[in-house]
């Protein structure tokens, strides 16, 4: 088996294959970052919505809870399939990458919303009362008092979640998105040894994921002890 690797190596480590894998890596990153950014924004909205108390927003609050609890309990693979078969008949021009990104959005919204909610809840209620009696609007309280204190509770698990999703996007290969995993399959189908093909793909994932997870660990220790700045 090692002879085969040594024999194939010159053909494998070519500029063309490198660009091919880098392109796939880019799509993996794109799905994750775009999906999780949108998920973070919408998730923040849902988390804030769930903190409101107005009676007329009650249906919206329940809808938010239902959404979060539902999508945290469905495998990403199943969500991918549902999104694919839902979008394709409506809008056949949608690219597979876009469809997969939508699925990432749906999932990350639910998970990040829970992370953000826990972060917002970590800020003592008295901080809000202080702001309230100084005539802060709820929005001002959120922006100037709660979020600046909550972000250090939110950030470490949020980064950890993004790291997890870098890996979970490998399932988008099933849709035919040429991200890293699918690229690995293509390389192997071209006749390269699976050891080389998938080995390279594992290394590529590691290169994406490891720095991010180090960042997450770093944030966790740093923000855990730092002052509130």
């Amino acid at each position: 088996m090692f002879e085969r690797i040594i024999e194939e190596a010159p053909r494998f480590f070519t500029y063309y294959n490198l660009m091919f894998v880098l392109g796939a890596m880019w799509r993996t990153l794109l799905m994750t970052l775009v999906g999780c950014s949108i998920g973070f924004t919408v998730g923040l909205g849902l988390a804030v919505l769930r903190r409101t108390s107005a009676a007329w927003l009650r249906p919206a609050r329940y809808a938010a809870i239902l959404y979060v609890e539902t999508f945290r309990r469905i495998p990403f693979l199943v969500v991918l399939f549902i999104v694919l078969y839902f979008i394709q008949p409506i809008y056949s021009g949608a690219s597979l990458l876009a469809i997969a990104t939508v699925a990432v959005c749906l999932m990350s919204t639910a998970f990040l919303s829970e992370i953000i909610r826990a972060g917002l809840e970590s800020v003592p209620r008295q901080q809000m009362e202080s702001a309230e009696v100084l005539n802060f609007h709820p929005g001002q309280t959120l922006a100037w008092v709660i979020l600046p204190q909550a972000w250090k509770v939110i950030l470490p698990p949020a980064v950890a979640f993004v790291v997890m999703f870098v890996k979970d996007t490998s399932l988008a290969s099933q849709l035919g998105v040429v991200e890293l995993t699918y690229a690995g399959k293509i390389l192997v189908n071209k006749g390269f040894s699976p050891l080389l093909g998938f080995g390279a793909i594992l290394a590529a994932y590691f290169i994406l994921s490891y720095p991010l997870s180090r960042l997450g660990a770093h944030l966790e220790t740093r923000l855990g002890t730092s002052r509130n700045t």
Binding site: Q126, Q127, E129, S130, A131, W144, Q149
Partner: peptide, 10 residues
Amino acid sequence: VFQQYNLFQN
């Protein structure tokens, strides 16, 4: 003014 001061920590 509250018992627990409740200054904005940030």
